[in-house]
Amino acid sequence: MKRICFYITMSLLTFESSALTTKASVKSPRCLLDNSAAICKTERLNLYVGPQSVEPGEPLYIAVETVNNQGGSGNSNNVVIVDTFSGREYFADVKHGLAHLEITAPIQAGRITFISRDYDIISNEAEVLVHAAIPDDFKLVLEKEKNQLFVSSSIITDKFGNMIEDGQAAQIVVSSRGALAEVFSTQLVSGRLNFRIKCSALPQSESSLSVNLRGVSTKINIPPYMCGGHSR
C-alpha cells in the first residue's frame, strides 16, 4: 500500500513538473498581437548606439529593444535613455518592441556612455567615442638650433576646442620656387607637431614649409638667413 501511495505521489509530482516545464517552454510569436499576455512582459532591454565613433555634432542613432523572456518583443510602452556623460535623459516611445531616436553627438570629445531603462529594468551600457573634428587653423613657429631648425605648432584643436588626438600623421613638404626639396611626415604628440629640419636639407634660396594635417594646411616661409647658408 505504501509503495502504491509512493508511486501515485511521484507520478503526480512528475506530472506537475512536466506541466510547468511545458508552460515555461511555450514561446509566443504573438506578443505583438496580444501584448497584454503575462508572457510578453519586458524582461530585458537591449541598447544599441551607433556609429560607435563620431565627430562632434554628427548624428547618433539610438535603438532600444524591449525583450520578453522568450526573446520576442516585450510590452513596454516607453523607455528612457540616459547619456551618463551629461546626465541628459531622452524619452522614446516603444512601437512593436523597438524604441528609436536620433540625437546629435556632443561637441566635447571623449567617451560617452548611454544606458536605457524601463522602470527597474536597466539595459546594457553602450559606449560611443566622440573624437575631435577636423583641425582648426594652426600656427607654426620656427626656431634656430645650431645647424638645424626646430619647428613647433601651437596646440591643435578642432573648431570646438577639442584637442586633435595624438598619433595622427601630418605631411611636411619643404619647397623652393615650386620645386620640392624635402617631404616627410611626423605624428601629433600632446596635441602639437614638433619636428626638426637640418639646414643642409634646405635650399640656399628662400624656401617654404607646408604642413598638412587631416586636410588642413599651414604654410610658413623659411628666410635664407635662418640657416644663413653657413651650414654648407
Binding site: 510569436p29 504573438r30 505583438l32 498581437l33 529593444e65 526573446g71 520576442g72 518583443s73 512593436h96 518592441g97
Partner: peptide
C-alpha cells in the same frame, strides 16, 4: 503581418525575431 528583426553581427546578418502583428 509579421515583424522580423535582423542584426548585423561579425558573422553576418542574423534574424532575432519573427512575430505576428496581425492575422
Amino acid at each position: 503581418t509579421r515583424q522580423m528583426r535582423f542584426k548585423l553581427t561579425q558573422r553576418g546578418w542574423v534574424q532575432t525575431t519573427s512575430e505576428i502583428l496581425s492575422e
